[in-house]
Design a binder for these strands. Sequence first.
DNA 1: AATATCTTTGCAACCGGTTGCAATAATAAA
DNA 2: TTTATTATTGCAACCGGTTGCAAAGATATT
Lengths: 333, 333
Amino acid sequence: MAVTLKDVAERAGVSRSAVSRTFTEGASVSAKTRKKVEKAARELNYSPSFIARSLATSRTKLIGLIANNFQNPVFLEVFDLFTQSLQERGLRPLLVNMTNQNDAEESVQMLKQYSVDGVILASSTMPPEFPQAFMGAGVPVVHAFGRYSPTPDVHVVGIDNIHCGALAAQTLSDHGYKKLGFLGGPQAATSTQDRENGFTSKAAQLGFLDVEVRYARAYAYDAGYNAMTDLLAENKVDAIFCADDLICMGAIDAAREHGVSIPEEMGFIGFNDMAMARWRAYSITTIRQPLTDIILGSVELVVSLLEQPDRAPEARLLPCKVIERDTLRSRPS
Amino acid sequence: MAVTLKDVAERAGVSRSAVSRTFTEGASVSAKTRKKVEKAARELNYSPSFIARSLATSRTKLIGLIANNFQNPVFLEVFDLFTQSLQERGLRPLLVNMTNQNDAEESVQMLKQYSVDGVILASSTMPPEFPQAFMGAGVPVVHAFGRYSPTPDVHVVGIDNIHCGALAAQTLSDHGYKKLGFLGGPQAATSTQDRENGFTSKAAQLGFLDVEVRYARAYAYDAGYNAMTDLLAENKVDAIFCADDLICMGAIDAAREHGVSIPEEMGFIGFNDMAMARWRAYSITTIRQPLTDIILGSVELVVSLLEQPDRAPEARLLPCKVIERDTLRSRPS
DNA sequence: AATATCTTTGCAACCGGTTGCAATAATAAA
DNA sequence: TTTATTATTGCAACCGGTTGCAAAGATATT
């Protein structure tokens, strides 16, 4: 059924090795043989089997792409960028959905069985032992959107969430708000912890006495809506840093239903700059995370790890910036 | 480095075949040997190589998951469901991003090289020759969200878009609107064509004289916003069927900016019932597509095709229903 | 106890490539 | 032209499993 090396070799009147070599980068074949082989291959519509090649070379060109967040639309953008840039490099993403996985072991096992060449973890909300588990499998691992550490034990490409929190505090302050609040995602998420820390300490430094801190149950619209509804009843804040745009949209809708005007009575700054942040109904001022750079960086890193698997883990941080739209009143002059 | 069959066999004091058999479904091994082998395997932390197994059995358990739409958030839900249900069956999704691909051949080639067991195309906006190309590769293909045909040449699991269009017309009529409009996605998309047909013919049947038909340049917010802005200037309609919720949100925002009140002055019905349709800022009345059923159906179908690859192509249609929210005024009594 | 039947086991070939090594061919140097 | 050097080629072993087949072992039948 399938046409193999052997068929091509016979047709071209050469040995199997010759055929193999014409399909291998930088192998030694004369122009003449190459010609013959290519002709035969074309006529038979032959294409080499990656499976067989993988077995022989123990390189599969498969990259495990592991995610546990299929709710937040930014991840669609993330998948788009990952798949495209992997494809461009001749690599293939084997997608793993860890949403309902309380145990990383199973996924690790599975990736080992497929002998993926490398693994990219795409998530900030991941129990710290997960990266470890993948790390332990002896496969190059890059944790995209991972937490910064000066001495990471796994390669990380991401952002400085603490600095982002500070950026948010500074921005709210600049725009003349007086009573700041933080609305995080799940308290267990390191991204929320870091953004909160950065936010509250910068706020303190800027002279804000106390900052109201709340958590949404998830990085999700409803969670933001509910948390904000509670917060509104207490009338404690006039500006909020939401740790995610989705949360921010929920919060904004809650505020509007409560009759508060945005940005005059209450200011909002979000996080991510997802596509929807631009929608007219929201037009959120938000902190943009350099998605493309993070992803290209992760892919590049994993590719270079294929060559030198033992490079010491590094953390690569990329800068975020504030995108000003319409949920903050204009700066006082 | 990696521990193989041979290592386990030696340690357990049995033949390689014995080890292979204890790891193969329904092979004949005595309880005693199985015990020994499992012990040895555990001690060595052995797990069989899928690559080697694939080579021997010519079954990879890899399913090509092909998509060309990474802009519409519903697809995140689609990926979530696909990956989960494939995983549950011990299959693995090899994700292919055809966004920038004008030629299917390359992807077909690639999937052939990885010898995927089957392929799922997840898209409605796909040139008809693509399914053909994948079909031609001699691999089971299921076209999820594909177009209905009584005599399909590739397996299809999807919805009856013509009927959905009719449903929309009926609904707008029921709610007392008089001047109907259709706002589609790209005119080349079969899903738009079918929804339009169903909509206009049902409208005609219900006595609507002429229906305004427009197309957004893409299934996207901005496209909907722009198309609606144009349409509003002409003041021709009082109710619109948008062929996608994203388009609908753009259109709604355009209408609001134009000062028209929803649902009194203008009614909207969307399509998909994506998560955002529920957001308070929109709360769109929309036609729900049974995503979960389509996906489970597609996976089931592809699985059954693994057993009987030559089953005649069938088209499986699943019912949609209207989800009433707040973008249509209440029915006249 | 001897024979028939059913399981379990190991051997060895095979899946479709890659690659080190030695033999051969082509080219350069003397 | 002969010899030294380099480039190409084929052989055969290997990657890590699976599986048909025949031999050996267990169990059932008479």
